[in-house]
Write a protein that binds this DNA or RNA. Structure first.
Length: 349
DNA sequence: AATTTAACCAACCGCCGAGCG
DNA sequence: GCGCTCGGCGGTTGGTTAAAT
């Protein structure tokens, strides 16, 4: 009936492996092959359980493992595969020779995921998420360009996340619903509405805005990623157009979505460009020093959407790009005008 | 120089499907 | 068919190192 227990964990060593243990394990496997992981530790003279040995071998000691930092192309592949496969690290690792699932998982969680979040991309759905955008950083950076002298100490009130959310909601509202926007203006000047009340109100507006975005994602097919659905948003969707750089970003995603619409396997130019723009840290055109490279106005859909390769060759060399360069590329030269609607905030800043 | 914070990553934990007896 | 282990997988933890204060 059944098999005998894998191992009695009592008395077995845990924690980091010593070089001696590594040597024992490597020597044994090179001589006999991995065979049965349950009996291996005993045969190899190790006070470890088989599971620990297997992990150590597959994640670290295996001779075909490639160590060191991930290349630009590898990052691109990971993002592309993740957008298709999700957190199937082993499946992703199978397509990246020399990389383990554990290594890819770690790299995703410590590097790529954070970068996507910073650029307003949902790392789960790969869809643009306005609520993830670090508006504080964007506005702060913009202020530095407007007034470099103020860069060391931006006005704290302007960097208040709540106020920035209000700003975003107001900007959106002005375009989407002028009547409601006018009503909000009245609220601003209404002495009976406190700033905190207004913030709550505006946050609710923003959440409605995001909900609309999410509903668009949910309603158009279970297997279609969020970035595809984003293309269905109106071209003149308010908030994006109030800030030129974000507007351009929105259009780029729409172009990307259009490129994917007949090619949901992720191999189209749109998908390629989408992945590249994520790796660039630019979140589309945000922070792109040379907008001509990847700018794709919606008004001219026939315009060639840059592929990952020409993007790489054109503006961001793959193999020579360091982490710092990727980051600075992302944050450099953010220039946009603060929309008029934001002037309302002056009243309570 | 000391302390705190952030980043990184190896290793562990727990779950699951396949297969054995 | 049932109970059990193995091997594989994804999520999480915790130790170490680097950077910032």
């Amino acid at each position: 009936m059944g098999r005998t227990p894998c191992c009695d964990k009592n008395g077995l060593k845990k924690g980091p492996w010593t070089t001696e243990e590594d040597h024992k394990l490597t020597s044994y496997i090179q001589l006999h092959g991995p065979g049965n992981w349950r009996t291996l530790p005993k045969n190899a003279g190790l006070q470890r359980c088989g599971k620990s040995c297997r992990l150590r071998w597959t994640n670290y000691l295996r001779p075909d493992i490639k160590r060191g930092r991930f290349a630009f192309e590898e990052e691109e592949t990971i993002i592309q595969l993740h957008s298709i496969l999700g957190n199937k690290w082993s499946a992703i690792a199978a397509r990246l020779p020399g990389r383990t699932d554990n290594e890819i998982k770690n790299y995703w969680n410590t590097h790529i995921r954070k970068r996507l979040l910073r650029n307003g991309i949902d790392p789960v759905t790969h869809a643009p998420r306005l609520d993830l955008l670090d508006l504080s950083a964007i506005l702060g950076n913009a202020l530095c360009h407007v007034n470099p002298a103020a860069s060391s100490q931006p006005p704290p009130s302007l960097l208040n996340p709540d106020l920035l959310r209000v700003a975003a909601a107001l900007a959106s509202l002005q375009q989407e619903n002028p009547e409601l926007y006018h009503q909000q203006q009245q609220n601003l000047t209404d002495s009976q509405t406190t700033p905190s009340q207004l913030i709550q109100q505006q946050q609710a507006d923003l959440e409605r805005f995001l909900e609309l975005n999410n509903n668009n994602d949910n309603n158009s097919g279970s297997q279609v990623s969020g970035k595809d659905n984003f293309a269905s948003l109106p071209n003149d969707f308010g908030f994006w157009n109030t800030i030129p750089e974000l507007s351009e970003n929105c259009r780029s995603f729409q172009s990307c979505g259009a490129g994917l619409s007949g090619n949901n396997n992720g191999n189209g130019n749109g998908a390629d460009w989408y992945q590249s723009s994520l790796i660039s840290g630019g979140g589309g055109n945000i922070g792109n020093a040379d907008s001509s490279v990847i700018s794709t106005p919606l008004s001219s859909p026939a315009q060639v959407t840059p592929t990952s390769s020409n993007f790489v060759n054109g503006s961001l060399s793959a193999s020579t790009t360091t982490e710092d360069e990727r980051e600075s590329y992302c944050s450099s030269l953010l220039k946009f005008e603060i929309p008029e609607s934001l002037e309302l905030l002056d009243d309570f800043m």
